[in-house]
């Protein structure tokens, strides 16, 4: 089993040449990219490569997680992430339980920990959690016996999104190391940004971030990225352009004068895309605000891989579920 075979990812071996390839994850939860080594990230991406094929079979299901129960606990609205997790769980034959917060006891004032502990009493194996508060997954990982998968916590991390973005980039470019990746938009409120920066810098990409100064978190350059508020500088010769959503629901102040002005200064238009490399790809984690951060002709244009990201999300989440279900190194101690 440990015999190494020629994998399609030999480019990453430049980054991880000094460490042997990982064969399983170190931690029993997936709380953020911050906890993953480059070798573990490559393991998840390689496993997702194998999972991808299942979507093209006549019977899109394997029996791997038969008899396992996964709770999808979503405290914030979500279309893509929740359905993507659910499809991934079902393709692996897990039993899934969706808790819709609008119809749950949370509206009666139950706390997150109480809700989770009550669900745990029904002995699930994993909990996929989305919550508006940063650190909610870390909190549950300390009180719950189930494995916790972070599906987005506040403004902190969204690890499976960053993994599927990396997977999509790798499919198009064959590597991550040495690529110029420009991430533009609402940097301040974005958990997608944080997870992506951690992952991409870990695998050797050159990351540029760009947004209005009011939406740039202070100290972000300490994560090893180049910061600019000039879109043209960020996009010039980029291999990958990643747009972030303007998160109006998290904005209580006036961060910019108007949506129209934002589009004029920071929106991704065809003219700006032409500054990037001719084979650049355009990404967006969704949901898109057309005409705010991205022009429709760019979103639907030839460089856009936005719908591919959604398809790849299922394979990446299957890989995460499979690897966590198999047992992690830190469970050896427990």
């Amino acid at each position: 089993m440990t015999k190494s075979s020629s994998s399609p990812t030999s480019s990453e071996s430049v980054v991880v040449a000094d460490a042997p390839p990982a064969t399983r994850l170190k931690h029993r939860h997936l709380l953020g990219i911050a906890d993953l080594t480059p070798e573990e990230i490559v393991l998840i991406l390689d496993t997702a490569e194998a999972m991808q094929e299942i979507a093209h079979r006549p019977i899109k299901k394997v029996p791997t997680l038969r008899g396992r129960t996964v709770v999808n606990l979503f405290f914030e609205p979500s279309t893509r992430t929740r359905t993507s997790f659910e499809v991934a769980e079902k393709r692996l034959s897990a039993d899934t339980l969706n808790v819709a917060i609008a119809t749950s006891s949370v509206v009666k004032g139950e706390t997150l920990v109480d809700t989770a502990l009550n669900l745990e009493a029904m002995s699930p194996d994993m909990i996929v959690l989305r919550h508006a508060s940063s650190g909610a997954c870390h909190l549950l990982s300390r009180v719950c016996r189930s494995k916790i998968i972070n599906a987005g916590d506040g403004m902190h991390e969204h690890p499976t999104q960053a993994l599927l973005d990396a997977f999509t980039i790798r499919r198009h470019k064959g590597r991550l190391a040495g690529l110029k990746v420009a991430i533009l938009g609402d940097l301040l409120h974005s958990r997608v940004l944080r997870s992506n920066v951690l992952l991409l810098t870990r695998l050797g990409a050159e990351v540029w971030v760009c947004g209005p100064p009011t939406l740039v978190p202070p100290g972000i350059e300490r994560l090893g990225v180049k910061v600019t508020s000039v879109v043209e500088d960020a996009v010039r010769d980029a291999d990958v352009i990643m747009m972030l959503r303007i998160q109006l629901e998290r904005m209580q102040g006036a961060f910019f004068p108007s949506l129209r002005e934002y589009f004029n200064v920071f929106g991704m238009t065809e003219a700006r895309v032409r500054l990037a490399r001719p084979d650049a790809i355009i990404m967006h984690p969704g949901p898109m605000n057309r005409g705010v951060e991205i022009a429709s002709e760019v979103a639907d244009g030839p460089f856009s891989v936005i719908l591919e990201q959604v398809a790849n999300g299922v394979a990446v989440r299957m890989a995460v579920l499979y690897l966590l279900a198999g047992g992690a190194e830190d469970e050896a101690v427990a």
């Binding site: 440990t2 094929e53 050896a332």
Partner: peptide, 25 residues
């Protein structure tokens, strides 16, 4: 054919090296 996802011993050993999933073509 990769049979990793169909093995009957996968989730039985709580701890042990996880077989790598390879592609089926």
């Amino acid at each position: 054919l990769d049979i990793t996802l169909y093995r009957d011993d996968l989730m039985r050993q709580a701890v042990g090296p996880q077989p790598l999933v390879r592609s089926t073509d």
